[in-house]
Simulated scan of single mutants.
Amino acid sequence: MIYKQLSYLPIIFQVDEGIVLGVDEYLRRNKLSFTNILVVSGKNYSNKIGALVADKNGWNRYTLEDNTFREVELLKTYVNRYNIDLLVGVGGGKVIDTVKRVGYLSNTNNLSIPTIISNDGLISPISVIKNELGKTESLPAMMPMGVIIDIDIIKESPVKFLQAAAGDVLANLSATNDWVLAFQQDRERMNDIAFHLSRSAVSSLINFDEIHLLSKSFLRLLVQGLVNSGIAMALSGTSRPCSGSEHQISHAIDFLEYGEGVLHGTQVGSISLFSLFLQNKVEAKQMKFARTVGIPLLFDGLIRNFSSRRFEEIIDKSREMRPGRYSILDMLTTNQVMEKYEEFRAFIKSNNF
């Protein structure tokens, strides 16, 4: 059966050290009972963690190759054939997104145990899946009924993933500013709770006393920020609380294949600083936070063979990436955006950020 959730919000939310093997206890504590549980993981590190979880509880295991349409169909077929009633996704974004998508398509509960964090997709109602051409698509997904995050495991992941996670939360600032602009232009409605969840996720990080990616107290706050971002998207029924002009530009870079292959969160976090400048909302503490966690202050270094021509293409294409999504880019011409970028470069230099 499907357990009813308010707006499909998670029932289980655990963040602590050494808790990865406590899945069965958290299910019992919440009086959740399943008869056929499948642990889904990737091929590398997550496979080892998935094996520990499955072996401890006598659950079956399934290994994913990638987050493709084909893998989604294969897992969905398995779930339906063997009457799986709970999917436990153990891994990074590819595993979690595939499990959420299959949960949506097969009407099956799912629970997430991330082994890395790099973006706000942990519990969002959206899955990023590769189509037949290798291009990613953002598709509807079933939010996990729970998320269990073992800080000891997350802390061991490469620093670049933690940087990306911080960047993705940072992007909430420019995204919510764009949301306000759209609301003021009567283009969209607001959801106050979603708005404040998104803003509080990033403000708590920026104003934290001990900003250090390997600090367990900072990691707890970062995880909570990612989860709050996912809940904000679920409450609003859209990615709007966490996606604005910075994501439009990032999607354009990816679509044109001009990127240098950096993680999504790092890319949108870097671009968000420029979006904040366009919105006349940039502050010193935002720049200092980005520098401290390793987010590039200028995003042109993330573009392969950067040139004025490529920049122009990116800005033009960005307005096409999310039709109907109003942002600061709709208030400026492409030439104005390009001129503003040079002003932003000078702003960074003059303030010694």
Rank of each mutant, 00 (worst) to 15 (best):
S204W: 01
A194H: 09
V180L: 15
S318W: 07
L170C: 08
E260D: 03
E137D: 15
N351M: 09
R28E: 14
H264Y: 08
L173I: 15
Q14V: 14
D186F: 04
L87K: 09
K340L: 05
P144W: 12
K56H: 07
S7R: 07
S327V: 05
V147R: 00
R319G: 00
L222R: 00
R187M: 13
T176P: 08
T333I: 04
L38P: 02
P323M: 10
N335I: 06
N191K: 08
L139S: 12
N228W: 14
I295H: 01
T292K: 15
L6M: 11
A252C: 07
A166Q: 08
P158V: 00
I149S: 10
S229Q: 04
F277A: 13
R189P: 00
V268G: 11
T238Q: 05
S308Y: 03
Y3G: 03
N172A: 11
S307Y: 11
G167Q: 08
F208A: 06
D120E: 08
V90K: 00
P10K: 11
N228T: 06
D150S: 10
I153Y: 00
N119Q: 06
L86S: 06
L302D: 07
S138I: 04
Q224R: 10
I149E: 04
L278H: 09
N47Q: 14
S33H: 15
Y82E: 13
S124I: 11
E283L: 14
F208I: 03
K160Y: 04
D186M: 03
A51G: 01
R29F: 04
V20D: 02
D24T: 04
K76L: 11
N83Y: 10
N57S: 11
R291F: 08
F195P: 13
W179A: 03
M287K: 06
R309K: 14
K340S: 15
L181R: 15
R291M: 12
F306L: 00
N335R: 04
P144H: 10
I12W: 14
L332Q: 05
G92Q: 12
F69R: 02
H212L: 02
N107D: 13
R187I: 11
S239V: 06
F347E: 14
R70P: 00
M1H: 14
V99K: 11
F195L: 15
S204C: 05
S41M: 09
P323K: 14
K43P: 02
A182Y: 06
G91F: 08
A166W: 06
L221F: 00
K130N: 13
T115Q: 05
L173N: 06
I12N: 11
E313G: 03
I12T: 11
G58D: 05
I84G: 13
T68P: 01
L276K: 05
L332G: 01
I123G: 12
T136Q: 11
L27G: 01
S236M: 13
V79Y: 05
S204F: 03
G167P: 09
V23R: 05
L133G: 02
T136L: 06
G259V: 10
S106R: 04
T77R: 06
L105D: 15
D178G: 08
E320F: 12
M142I: 02
K43I: 08
G301P: 08
E246H: 09
